[in-house]
Structures are given as C-alpha cells and as structure tokens.
Design a protein around this nucleic acid. Structure first.
Lengths: 147, 147
DNA sequence: CCCCCATTCTTGACTAATTCAAGATAACTG
DNA sequence: CAGTTATCTTGAATTAGTCAAGAATGGGGG
C-alpha cells in the first residue's frame, strides 16, 4: 500500500488517533472528488451504518486542521473536501451546476500571487477561484453551431 | 450629485423600480465597506424603522443581480456586500478577525488570470482571495520585537 | 496484558443565515 | 388616474452546521 493511501499511517503521522470513523471519512474524501459533508456521511455509512453525523463533522474538521484533507467553500456551495493537499492548486466552479474541477497553479509556491497593495496584511495564501460554465452547461446555454 | 451617488438614477438605469428600501440599502452599502446583511438591515432601519429583513434580502439580491453592488462570501463568513463594482479587484481576508480589505487587480480585465488547464470550462472570472493576518492580528500573534 | 484517562463518539437539542409562500401595497405605464 | 406587476410584509420553514453532556474507546504506562 502506498504511503498515500495507508490511512492509519496518515492519521498517526498527523498525531491523530486511528478510529473507524476517521478511516472511513479519509477513504471517502480520497474516493469522492470535491465531496460535500452529506456525501461523506453517506459513503461512511455504507460501511459503518451507525456513525453519527457529528462524528463525520468532527473527523472532517480534525483532518482539515491536520492538513490531511482540504476544505473548500466556493460561494453558494456547502463545504466541500478534497484529498489533494500540499500543492497549491485552485478550482474552476460552474456557475450553473456547481461542478468543480482542479486547476494547477502555475506558480507552485504560496502565496502563488502577490497582492498589489497588501494593506499591511501578512499574507500566506492566495486562493484563486475561476468562475464560468462547465462544458455541459456551456453547451446547453449556447448550443453548438449546427454548421 | 455625482452620477455615482444618484441612487434613484442608478436604480432606473439598471431597470429597477425606485423604492425606499432599495434606496436605503444602496446607501448603506455605499457607506459601509464590506458590510454584512445584518449591518445593512441595521443601517436601513435607522432611517426606516419598519423595513422587513426580507425586503433587505430581496433588495440586496436585486442590486447584486443588476450589478449595482457586489456580493462576496469568503469561506467562514456570512455574505458581504460592497459598492465598488465594475473593476476587477480582489480581497485580503484576516484569518483571525475576518477583516476584509480591497486589493487592486494588477491586470484589470476579466478574467484577470487564465487557468493553466480550464477542463473545457468557459471561464468569465478569476476571483482571488488572499488569506493572512491583518496588521492588528499579526501584531498580537507575533509581538513587535522589543528593540 | 490490563488499566487509565484524555480524546473521540453518540445523542439530541439548538442556532444562524437565508429562503419560501401568500397576501397586501406601491411603482411605473399609458 | 387606473391597471398591472413588481415589491414588500408577515410569518413559517429549511439547511448546514455547532453546542453540550455523557458514554465509549484508543493507546501509552505499569
């Protein structure tokens, strides 16, 4: 098993206790791209039917704080989580259906952009969200020219 | 009165009916930088004590849709509104106290950044949020060297 | 290997922000 | 000035998430 998916090891490495809910939550976030809390709860309950929603909320918070998952919250969306952490990638969000896709950051290091005037703020991250229409919604909005 | 602050004219120009709640909401957003809905309700009620919260929510939505105000929703914050529209400026948000400041976009036109791989999305905006600590919170976290 | 205790989980109530819906009111058109 | 339709009022509902108290359990120390 690659170190990337040895979930018990990931938890221990982050100083977190290894519990069933956390393992399942971690697996769910690895399996479901940009999943929201509800779908994590659903995925976890497929294997452990009796976990409380609170346990999932707690796990997601512990994992986010530990840096094992990343929480994203595009405007108008509920909280979403992803397993791709440590790099400085960004997201495209479809204004119509809410679909999210990853966008690599060209720069790489954080913050990947510098503010023109930082107002004295100590900036550690530049979060970029691209807004637009996903391929499907764009096609529906402006039908392909029929030629 | 400059066209910038002739609120009835702004509303008419956007095809919106001129109503007391809308005028007051517009004035509040112009007066209060990055204000949330609650402070808009408070400001409006100082002049018109009986406006319903729903009227304010409706007005804010109408004004946002018409492009007269801009709605911003940094993760972890309630919806906030600002009167600076039309340009493509960004925001710095303090992780500690939530304070928001404007950051000019160096590029100007939208989207101000292009995605390295757009996954077929039709992108119309690149929203940048800088995260860090405001001067006050930074000073509190890492005290000024005493000499 | 077992005990202990801090951490985590369960249960269930609660909150905040926002939306929904139905009827009353008021802004613009002609 | 009257009609039409958008907007506002009122009041309830929803959603996503947090809070809190007590039960359970992971993992270090004996």
């Amino acid at each position: 098993m690659s170190p990337e998916t040895d979930f018990p090891q990931l938890l221990r490495g982050a100083g977190l206790r290894v519990t069933r809910p956390r393992l399942e939550v971690l697996a769910a976030v690895y399996a479901l791209p940009h999943c929201d809390t509800d779908s994590v709860i659903g995925a976890v309950r497929r294997n452990v039917p009796d976990v409380s929603h609170q346990a999932v909320y707690d796990s997601l918070r512990a994992l986010s704080t530990a840096g094992l998952v990343r929480k994203i919250q595009p405007a108008g969306s509920v909280a979403r989580y992803e397993a791709r952490v440590g790099d400085n990638h960004h997201h495209v969000v479809c204004r119509s259906c809410g679909q999210i896709a990853d966008v690599d950051c060209a720069v790489g290091e954080r913050p990947c952009l510098h503010a023109s005037d930082d107002h004295g703020f100590v900036i550690d991250e530049a979060e970029v969200t691209y807004w637009g229409l996903c391929p499907d919604c764009a096609a529906a909005a402006v039908p392909e020219p029929t030629h």
